[in-house]
Computed example of a mutant assay.
Amino acid sequence: MRNFSFIFSLSAFIVTMYFLITDFPTLDSSEGIIYLSMVIVLLLICITGVIINRPALPRRPYSMR
């Protein structure tokens, strides 16, 4: 389940970045500012999901040399 959440968060981040780059809003109107702020919040949620669900890297124990 954790791997699914990681993959889903990563794919949502990529799709959101794609739409932000291809359909960048005009910041002259309040609708553009609201749209941009909603996209930024969505990106922050995706980043949080990626950080929380990232796969644990195997760690080597320290040797007693």
Rank of each mutant, 00 (worst) to 15 (best):
L43Q: 13
M17D: 03
P25E: 08
F4M: 10
P55A: 14
T26C: 02
A56S: 11
I45K: 04
R54V: 06
L10I: 01
A12V: 07
R65Q: 12
I14G: 00
D23P: 00
G32Y: 12
S9D: 14
S37I: 08
L44I: 13
I40N: 03
D28N: 13
L57Q: 10
S5C: 12
I33N: 04
R2K: 14
I40M: 12
I40L: 14
L42Q: 11
R65K: 10
L43E: 11
N53F: 08
I51S: 09
N3Y: 02
T48H: 10
V50K: 04
I52E: 05
F4W: 09
L42F: 11
F24V: 07
F4R: 05
V15I: 15
L43N: 09
D28M: 07
R2H: 12
L27G: 06
M38D: 11
F8W: 04
E31N: 14
F8K: 13
T16S: 12
R2P: 00
I40W: 07
F13K: 09
I7M: 10
T48P: 00
L43D: 06
L36R: 05
N3W: 04
V39N: 04
T16A: 12
F19S: 04
S9K: 02
G49L: 06
S30Y: 11
V41W: 06
P58V: 09
F6C: 07
Y62H: 08
S11Q: 06
P55D: 15
L36M: 13
I45S: 09
P25C: 07
L27W: 10
T22C: 04
I52V: 15
L43K: 03
I14S: 08
V50N: 00
F6V: 00
D28K: 10
I52C: 04
I34T: 14
I21R: 06
N53Q: 08
L44W: 02
T48E: 08
I7Q: 12
M38E: 10
I40G: 04
D28A: 11
M38Q: 14
I52F: 14
P58D: 12
C46E: 07
R59C: 05
F6Q: 14
L36T: 13
R65L: 10
I47E: 02
R59Y: 08
S30G: 03
R60A: 01
T22H: 05
S11M: 15
F13G: 00
I47D: 05
F4T: 14
Y18G: 01
R54H: 13
S37V: 13
G32D: 11
L27T: 05
T26G: 08
Y35D: 13
S30C: 03
N53I: 05
S9Y: 01
S5I: 07
P25M: 03
C46D: 15
R65V: 09
L27K: 02
I40H: 01
I45E: 04
Y35C: 09
S11W: 10
Y62E: 13
P55Y: 07
P58M: 05
R54L: 12
V15N: 01
V39G: 00
V50S: 00
S29Q: 08
R59G: 01
P25A: 06
S29D: 15
F6K: 06
V50H: 01
V39P: 00
M17V: 12
G49P: 08
L20W: 12
R60L: 03
I7L: 14
L44E: 10
